[in-house]
Design a protein around this nucleic acid. Structure first.
Lengths: 130, 130
DNA sequence: ATCAATTACAGTAATAATTACTATTATTTA
DNA sequence: TAAATAATAGTAATTATTACTGTAATTGAT
């Protein structure tokens, strides 16, 4: 019960997420999806983004400035945030097993996952200086 | 110019942060600080928490559910979030240098810092089960 | 100590992001 | 094809945070 029903809106949202690596916010998703679905409502975008996150077909990333962004790449990976342009990048880097072991060793409980964000300046912004 | 002026309110906020490791939200800080300062306004709490963060006397941590929490411990450290009770813990664990090196190796830009949160179940919640 | 300049405050209004609600529409099941 | 269920659009409500404004506190110089 409470089974998932197909919806064209959700498919468009999913497909948009799968074609971008820009880690869009809900509002950005809304703007893009409206091109194919002019009458979609922002609430529908929110509901589906959260739903996709719940069923593991998207990842929700909250950056320190409070912005909530979505990622269609669901395999565990780290991110880099450019502190100049606020762009968020996927890092093509293995998730560290040793850091999990270390964390487990110093936390009196269980640890099942972790996330990390690296802060820096992207090559694009480095090029811009001077 | 725009120099910092003493305020008793800010001192009380700072002192509260220094005596707790509960990583309170702005609202929680507000509630506690009001015991000593019944007429303090929530805006003052927000302004000072952000100010303290800006001058490096506090750290702002945003958890995936969007909650913004503050930490009076300003030395770099990792956190563990209990997914049952939502409590946030400081991890007494060295910040990994190797993970920074790895990240630098695969990001075409500079990296100056990073943060990590581990997700799991704390000992208190583990004890509660069954 | 007093005064002028500046910063901070309390209290309130405004904003922004997200969620909740409701009547209607689309999808699924039988 | 009809009944049951879930999803939608559109709107209202909620929550967290910031902005505004007149007053109060702090500072630095006389």
């Amino acid at each position: 019960m409470a089974s998932l029903k197909y919806s064209r809106q959700r498919e468009v949202i999913k497909s948009y997420l799968s074609t971008t690596d820009s880690h869009p916010t809900a509002d950005t998703v809304y703007m893009h999806v409206r091109e194919q679905f002019p009458h979609i409502s922002l609430g529908t975008v929110y509901r589906n983004l959260n739903l996709l996150t719940d069923i593991g077909e998207a990842i929700k990333i909250t950056t320190p400035d409070g912005a909530v962004r979505f990622d269609g790449v669901t395999s565990p990976h780290y991110h880099a945030l450019c502190t100049e342009c606020e762009r968020l990048f996927d890092l093509d880097m293995n998730v560290s097993e040793s850091i999990i072991e270390e964390a487990r060793a110093c936390f009196p409980g269980t640890i099942h996952s972790h996330s990390a964000i690296f802060y820096g300046v992207c090559s694009h912004c480095l090029g811009k200086k001077h």
